[in-house]
Amino acid sequence: MSILVYTENWDGKFKKLSFELVSYAAAIAKEMGSTVTALSVGNVADDELNKLGNYGAAKILTVNDDRFSTLDNRALAKAVVAAAQNETAKIVIFANNNLGKAIAPRVSVVLQAGLVGGVMALPVTFDPFVVKKKVFTGKAFANVKFDTDVKVITLAQNSYDLVETENNATIEAFNPDIADSVFATSVSETNKVTGQVLLSDAEIVISGGRGMKSGDNWGGLEELADLLNAGMACSRPVSDEGWRPHSEHVGQTGKIIAPNIYFAFGISGAIQHLGGVSSSKIIVAINKDAEAPIFETADYGIIGDVNKVIPQLIEGVKEM
């Protein structure tokens, strides 16, 4: 019996979230007297695979089969199911990101497992197995109980800190037998975001709303983001107007993020916007309207004009 973790790499390097997932799984394994097996799909060097061991994986299954590079949902799910069965996994853990959301539901059906998506922390209790998650787009939390022997979880981003342990990991090649006919996805174009901090990975996020007034006004925010190694975000009207790319839209109908600091410049704080950012550890709001609802959610605020505040913040960061 084990806990299986689906890890993700980007051009052969693990994403930080993979180490988060393994740390999280290791904490559960300790509680349940179990061990962690990490599954890695793609071409990853042994040195890099070994890093999973630093966070508590006892075994690393590596699937090196190019056919999976198209991220075919059905085929990937079959590979995870094969690994889960191979390891008699009682719990299978994914990230609650695009790929995790795509595969976890399929895996849960085959394993006859309950699925809870967007889990925020270690289980509330182990017997019964109860986990906590956000509901109503962050307006409330729910405790959810599993009725199944096998359980599938997707872990919300930034929910668990990395914990380093002694490394005793073994690496094994794993070759699930999946027919060519299962691979139905044919990718013709891939656009990777390069040269900037990915919004979903960013620990600090700089976000602008309609109060920024135009698409030409973003230089200061970009400079601030550069200095802080931050990701860029915006409210929905900003991306609708074409001031910023759609990939930066956060909120209920955009991305849901949980950085350590979320800076909101000229954002009123509509409920649908907050749905995407309310899990941020600290929210800083800059708005000229003292009555703006964003101040009810923010931890730090400035009632003032973004044009006056941004240069001062840039100066402040430079002086740090």
Partner: peptide, 11 residues
């Protein structure tokens, strides 16, 4: 069903 809501909390 395979999961059940036990209860809810407000932030």
């Amino acid at each position: 069903e395979k999961t059940q809501f036990v209860n809810f909390e407000l932030p």
